[in-house]
């Protein structure tokens, strides 16, 4: 323990710029949908007391804030890196998590492409280990990057031996 105090550096790569677009589109869509619902309610109500608007503000302000700031914030925080020895990611925006799993302990490598992700040409890679707490997801990857990373990961993990516990 005589080593000097150390910190983790940032993972090397950022997510795809299209991921930021996707987060923004989703956040704006959520905001718009909520506005529509609230407007419909306001129209249908017989009377509109002052506190209704307060309640609306309480609901809408955080959603608007998320739509404005979240994509940029996430873009700065979300990062990933795959070395020959390990997977390292940083994610989250309210709670940030830096996750590291050595590739010798990796059990499965999954790719996921949801409907919206496909629209933006994105993929997510999930790497699981023998621990339920150890799964690592790299989100917002370009599809070709994802394909290359998966190939790399499967090649390295196939070479390691033992049951990874």
């Amino acid at each position: 323990m005589s080593r000097p105090a150390a910190l983790l550096r940032e993972p090397a790569h950022q997510v795809s710029p299209r991921a930021v677009q996707m987060w923004r589109v989703i956040a704006v869509a959520e905001l718009a949908a909520t506005v529509v619902v609230l407007v419909v309610i306001a129209v249908l109500l017989p009377s509109r007391p002052w506190w209704l608007w307060v309640a609306y503000a309480v609901v809408l302000t955080p959603l608007a804030a998320i739509a404005i700031w979240m994509p940029g914030l996430r873009n700065r925080i979300h990062r990933w890196e795959v070395t020959p020895g390990a997977v390292y990611t940083r994610s989250g925006w309210v709670v940030t998590r830096q996750r590291i799993a050595p590739l010798s302990r990796v059990q499965t490598v999954d790719t996921r492409r949801g409907a919206i992700m496909r629209l933006f040409g994105l993929s997510a890679i999930t790497v699981t280990t023998a621990s339920a707490a150890g799964a690592i997801t790299i989100e917002g990857l370009d599809q070709d990057v994802a394909r290359r990373v998966v190939a790399e990961l499967t090649e390295i993990t196939a070479a390691s031996e033992g049951d990874a516990t």
Binding site: Q98, R99, A133, T165
Partner: peptide
């Protein structure tokens, strides 16, 4: 038995320079 690490920080923890360290394990 440690097969990975998670360093998580809530917004409040970041302000105070604290972190929650999770050692992942199969056991």
């Amino acid at each position: 038995g440690v097969i990975g690490w998670v360093v998580s920080q809530t917004w409040f923890q970041r302000r105070r320079g604290l972190a929650t360290l999770v050692a992942t394990t199969a056991a």
